[in-house]
């Protein structure tokens, strides 16, 4: 299964969501944000090298961290040298070897979002309740539909405590899929800064509970 985690707007928590979902689903997380990668880095071949044809996707996967990861390079020259036409085959190769792949997509509606969506079986959209973020998430929803990636769930990140069931239902109607609220929680940032997903470092945190509900949604949609 290939799962694309996307959402349109930057800074809504796509990387954090992808990292935690990969930990819960025992998947490889691929850092697909070619120009502005956020997930932990590592020495050795990375996704830039894979997309430039210098390394195979499987050999670039690291297994020594808390989550198996295909890291992304940080240089602009490396991002420039990527052949985006290789993304689909690279993700398929990781899926063949490891079974489950979670792709952390960049912001925007561009080829680095489209290629993972085209390769993916399903997507998780990440948004905050802010109108600008919701609008971008809905545009991404349309792109996912066009490219054949079904919506597994929407992660409504940094949801306020006063979000009612009624407001969740209106989100579900707009997106046409289940919405899981991820509450604001300081443990998420603390864990992320140490390069560990919160679901592993603080399984008792409220956000961890929410990420487990999100992962359960993804698993039930995959069946």
């Amino acid at each position: 299964m290939i799962l694309a985690v996307c959402g349109g707007k930057g800074g809504v928590g796509k990387s954090t969501t992808a990292f935690n979902l990969a930990a819960l689903l025992d998947a490889v997380v691929v850092d697909g944000d070619l120009a502005m990668a956020d997930l932990p880095t590592a020495r050795g071949p990375d996704f830039h090298d894979v997309l430039a044809g210098r390394a195979s996707a499987v050999e670039a996967v690291r297994e020594d961290g808390p989550v198996r990861i295909l890291p992304c390079g940080r240089s602009l020259a490396g991002a420039r040298a990527c052949d985006l036409g290789r993304i689909e085959a690279a993700l398929a190769a990781v899926e063949d070897e490891y079974g489950r792949v979670v792709v952390d997509c960049p912001a925007g509606l561009n080829a680095a979002v489209g290629a993972p969506l085209a390769a993916a079986d399903a997507c998780v959209l990440v948004t905050t309740p802010a109108p600008a973020a919701l609008a971008d998430a809905l545009r991404t929803r349309e792109l996912a539909r066009e490219l054949g990636a079904g919506l597994a769930a929407v992660a409504l990140n940094r949801a306020k405590e006063n979000e009612t069931d009624e407001s969740r239902e209106s989100y579900e109607r707009a997106f046409g899929g289940p919405v899981v609220r991820i509450p604001d929680c300081s443990a998420v940032a603390v864990a992320g800064a140490r390069g560990v997903p919160v679901v592993l470092s603080r399984p008792d945190a409220v956000a961890s509970e929410a990420f487990r509900r999100l992962a359960a949604r993804v698993q039930s949609s995959a069946r």
């Binding site: 120009a35 420039r80 925007g108 490219l147």
Partner: peptide, 10 residues
């Protein structure tokens, strides 16, 4: 997805 969408590379 690659030919019809904008190029995100710097």
């Amino acid at each position: 997805p690659v030919r019809d969408l904008p190029d995100p590379r710097p």
